[in-house]
Computed example of a mutant assay.
Amino acid sequence: MKHVSFAAAHAGMLVWALLIAASFFAAAKVGQSIDPILLTGLRLLFSALVFLPLLLLNNNSPLTARGLLAHAVLGLLLATYFGSLFEALRYTSAVNTATLYTLVPLMTLGFEALLQPSASLKTRVLPMTLAAVGAVLLILKGSAPDELPAQYPVVVFGIGCLAMALYSPVSQRFKVKVLKGRDPVAMTFWNMLFGAVFLLAFCLFSGGWRSGALLTGRDLFWLAYLALFGTLATFWLLHRAIGVIESSTVVSYVYLNTLFVTVYHWLWLSQQPTLLEAVGAVMVAIGIATLVMGSRNARPAMA
């Protein structure tokens, strides 16, 4: 795989944070009467097919049975996350799912400690926590009591967040041996394809495929947007950064999406920033800046 520089990896993750921020709201635009598992399966399948020509033109990563199994595991984690997101959005708001997603980097740090122990882990706890608290202040700034999510969507999306927290450290561990040398295009294609197969197979047994008749042109537009920008582009950027930056630092860029959404409200919707927003924005900025500077001297554990 072509080496990605430190600066390029972090620049790519800035774009990743912007795309993730937009995906929460785009997912909420898709028709709520359509089976969320079917929606996610179609989203991942479309993402994989877009990358197929690139894979065929640059097929320098031979597949083995163990490699396919590794991709299947990663595809199952993706299927769990995206399926849980669509299901949770049927019962709660995009803001509430974004709030819960702020826990993913801290979960990733815990899994990284188990799968990729390194001396730099302790130095990331404080800045990650600082950024997490700042992100929560930004997201919850205007919540009313009746906007709190119900227990079901919290549990459902909580499981999805655990799957997403596992994705980066498990992917990096696979890249050490069984998927060594696999480039971001191949990683994204096979992981998305397996995720789509799992979800669409489930739809066949559950009967969720029947709701496909309810798909409108508007739904297909948002699915195409999510497939191209919320799925394909973000996971290509993720795999591009994994191996250059520590897993927990990579995922910590999610805190920036809350900052980007808030800045959008300030600048384009002419909303006056509150004190909590200002404090949260500063905390996110300091936390991410500390993580970025610390990652320059720390390499991901590769054994």
Rank of each mutant, 00 (worst) to 15 (best):
F221L: 07
M302V: 09
M107E: 08
A144D: 14
H239A: 09
V251F: 00
V30Q: 00
I139G: 01
V50T: 12
L238A: 11
W266R: 12
G195H: 03
L39D: 01
D35Y: 00
A165T: 02
A233I: 02
V244C: 01
G12Y: 05
S143H: 14
V136H: 08
M1I: 04
G230H: 02
L220M: 08
D35K: 09
L114T: 07
V95H: 10
A186D: 12
L69C: 15
I37H: 12
G181I: 04
K180N: 10
F157G: 04
L106C: 06
L291R: 00
A28E: 14
L275C: 09
L115Y: 06
M293N: 09
F46Y: 09
L14K: 07
S295V: 03
S33W: 04
G31W: 03
T92D: 06
T234M: 08
W266C: 04
T216M: 12
S206R: 08
R43D: 02
G243V: 05
V261W: 10
T123M: 13
Y101A: 14
W268S: 13
G110W: 08
A144I: 00
K141L: 11
A27P: 08
K122R: 15
C161P: 09
L204R: 03
Q32M: 12
W268Y: 15
G207S: 05
S120I: 13
A278H: 09
S252I: 02
F51I: 14
L49P: 04
Y101V: 15
Y255C: 00
F205T: 01
P153A: 02
L103Y: 10
Y91L: 15
L14W: 09
Y167A: 10
L103T: 05
F260P: 04
S252P: 09
F174Q: 03
G195W: 00
A135G: 06
R124G: 04
L223H: 11
G208Y: 11
A131E: 08
T123I: 13
L276M: 14
S5A: 11
H3A: 15
D183F: 10
D219Q: 02
N257M: 13
M192H: 06
M128P: 13
R90A: 12
G134C: 01
T249P: 06
S270C: 12
L69T: 05
L19D: 07
L69S: 05
A213D: 15
L109M: 14
V15I: 14
G243P: 02
S61I: 13
S252T: 03
A233D: 02
G181C: 03
V292A: 00
A281W: 04
A22K: 08
A28I: 10
F198Y: 15
T258D: 09
G280T: 00
S118P: 08
E277R: 02
A113D: 06
S171C: 08
I245E: 01
V197L: 04
L63K: 03
R218F: 13
S270M: 15
T92A: 05
A278V: 13
Y225W: 15
V95A: 13
G158L: 12
S171Q: 01
A278M: 14
A163K: 11
S47N: 11
L238I: 04
L55S: 02
A70R: 06
A241C: 03
C161K: 07
R299Q: 15
L179N: 01
A144R: 09
